[in-house]
Amino acid sequence: MLVFILIAVFLMLMMLLRNKHYLLFSFMILLCSILPAYWRFETQPLTTQTMMFVAILVALAVIGRVPFASIPGVQAASFVIILGGISLGPELGFVTGATTALVSNMFLGQGPWTPWQMFAWGLMGLSAGFIGMTKLRKSLVFMIIFAGLWGFFFGWIMDLWYALAYVSPITPKSFILAFVSSFLFDLSHAISNVVLIGLLYRSWGKLFMRLDRKYNFLPTK
């Protein structure tokens, strides 16, 4: 409730200031959205095995992002984050995605885009976690479509940041142009997600199950 109240206050302040300082308030809203997930991560009982698995997934996602940084949109980080959300659930999926952005940007460069990437990848892990709680996780076709769509959703969230930060004046037309200009990058992200999910989703899922039977690191959802 406190988070919703704070977000409502920030939105009211933006209206009263006639949309001035919108970038500052955007960061405040993002922080309000991200902090509860980390708070839940710190307070809920987790085994050492589960925490180690989260750390391993983050490391794999970082490794899957950094080497492909020179190829816009192409990366393996999103594939790992989706698998993490499916396996760990929505809360740890969010933490895995958000932490991946923060850690990988230590190598690629931090900036005002980092909170937005944390939020976007966090939502990717969160939504994958909810899918993991249903029978849809067993459908390869559905997971391919899900991963492909998130290639575009991620790009649209980052386009929103770009438009707020650099486009002036802000009009519906300028927003549309910002979204259209990144289409090829978003398409590359979507294709890389689809290919990796199509080729590796089931084999990695079976690997996680075998490891869980031996080390018991997956939380009960």
Rank of each mutant, 00 (worst) to 15 (best):
167 V>I: 08
48 T>P: 04
14 M>N: 11
43 T>L: 11
149 L>Y: 04
42 E>C: 04
141 V>G: 11
199 L>C: 13
204 W>P: 00
26 S>T: 13
78 S>A: 15
60 L>H: 00
12 M>P: 01
165 A>I: 03
107 F>S: 13
177 L>K: 03
29 I>F: 06
186 D>L: 12
167 V>M: 06
28 M>W: 07
28 M>G: 14
18 R>N: 15
124 M>N: 15
216 N>Q: 10
98 A>I: 08
219 P>Y: 08
26 S>F: 11
23 L>P: 00
93 G>D: 02
92 L>E: 00
58 V>I: 15
218 L>W: 06
160 L>D: 02
164 L>K: 06
67 P>T: 05
22 Y>T: 05
45 P>C: 03
101 A>D: 05
79 F>L: 03
161 W>R: 04
68 F>V: 14
6 L>M: 11
96 T>A: 00
91 E>T: 14
83 L>W: 00
127 S>Y: 11
116 W>E: 08
168 S>P: 01
153 F>R: 05
28 M>K: 04
109 G>E: 07
112 P>G: 05
41 F>P: 01
131 I>Y: 09
50 T>H: 04
85 G>P: 09
198 G>P: 06
205 G>V: 13
27 F>G: 02
180 V>E: 15
162 Y>H: 11
13 L>V: 12
63 I>E: 07
145 I>H: 07
175 F>E: 01
5 I>E: 14
87 S>V: 14
185 F>K: 09
3 V>H: 09
10 F>R: 12
122 G>R: 05
171 T>A: 02
145 I>M: 14
49 Q>F: 01
62 V>N: 02
106 M>E: 09
40 R>F: 14
70 S>R: 03
108 L>R: 10
205 G>P: 11
150 W>T: 12
149 L>T: 05
193 N>A: 02
178 A>M: 14
72 P>D: 13
21 H>R: 13
39 W>I: 14
167 V>F: 09
35 L>S: 08
106 M>P: 06
145 I>C: 08
120 A>D: 01
